[in-house]
């Protein structure tokens, strides 16, 4: 456990030394929120204020989930640079570099979450659910993104290059985040698309966050999201660890 925290600290030091690593978690929520709200808000919801309760949870989920890709790409970069070969020679738990990296990335998710809610607040979004519900929603998104990061960590371990990890991940994430209810109501989409959007796990997470921040309700969608996260960890954590141990 101590080794894991040490490796997580290493991840945070890396961020401090190269703050441009945080561009995705800082710029993306700001640009996306401004762009979608001011350009499309009027056309979708009639006015900007009415669109904020819809878009802020959507942007939050999209940004934080997209950020989880970094886990895989950085893992692959570290393995390519031979840093992990050095770790192997140290008297530490072999799993520590992997678990440490995953733990450090929760800080990135927390930054993205805080920034998105702050941005929404500055634009006039007032969550009806109250501060407690906002904190629970933030923790839910961070937990689900941490679970998803195991998938990308697995890609990071098995892929050949960091760019291929990025490519595969975006191929998976683009349809999941955009073919969801994150930006527009499901009933405005064609029937054949509505079916996919309704079964899309990202849609469940977005709905769960919306219900929490706007109504303070922990609904079935939140339980589905947590169950989904648990299933992902149950499948991908052993796969990633096994693949990592084979290579490390």
């Amino acid at each position: 456990m101590r080794n894991t925290f040490t490796m997580a600290y290493r991840g945070l030091v890396k961020i401090r030394r190269t703050p441009e690593q945080l561009f995705d978690v800082t710029l993306q929520p700001i640009i996306f929120t401004l762009m979608f709200t001011y350009i499309f808000g009027g056309a979708i919801s009639g006015d900007v204020a009415s669109y904020l309760p819809v878009i802020i949870p959507g942007i939050l989920v999209q940004t934080v989930i997209t950020t989880s890709v970094v886990t895989g790409t950085q893992l692959r970069e570290d393995m390519d640079k031979g840093v992990f070969d050095r770790f192997r020679s140290l008297p530490i738990a072999r799993i520590a570099p992997l678990s440490g990296a995953l733990l450090a990335d929760t800080v990135r998710y927390a930054i993205a979450t805080t920034l998105t809610f702050t941005m929404g607040y500055l634009m006039g979004f007032r969550p009806e659910g109250g501060l407690g519900a906002v904190v629970v929603a933030a923790l839910l998104v961070i937990a689900c993104s941490w679970a998803i990061s195991w998938i990308f960590a697995f890609f990071g371990v098995i892929a050949r290059t960091a760019s291929s990890v990025q490519g595969i991940s975006m191929l998976v994430l683009f349809p999941l985040t955009f073919l969801s209810n994150a930006f527009v109501p499901v009933d405005t989409m064609p029937n054949w698309l509505q079916w996919f959007v309704n079964v899309n796990p990202v849609s469940h997470l977005v709905t769960a966050v919306r219900e929490l921040v706007n109504n303070g309700a922990f609904t079935s969608d939140a339980w589905i999201s947590l169950a989904g996260a648990a299933v992902i960890v149950a499948i991908f954590a052993p796969l990633t660890v096994r693949a990592y141990m084979r290579k490390a």
């Binding site: 979708i44 527009v184 405005t188």
Partner: peptide
């Protein structure tokens, strides 16, 4: 594809995608 099919119904005037 994205704006035409996913966002089109919500953005179109009168919902005419």
């Amino acid at each position: 594809l994205l704006f035409g099919y996913v966002f089109g119904g919500a953005l179109a005037a009168g919902g005419d995608a």
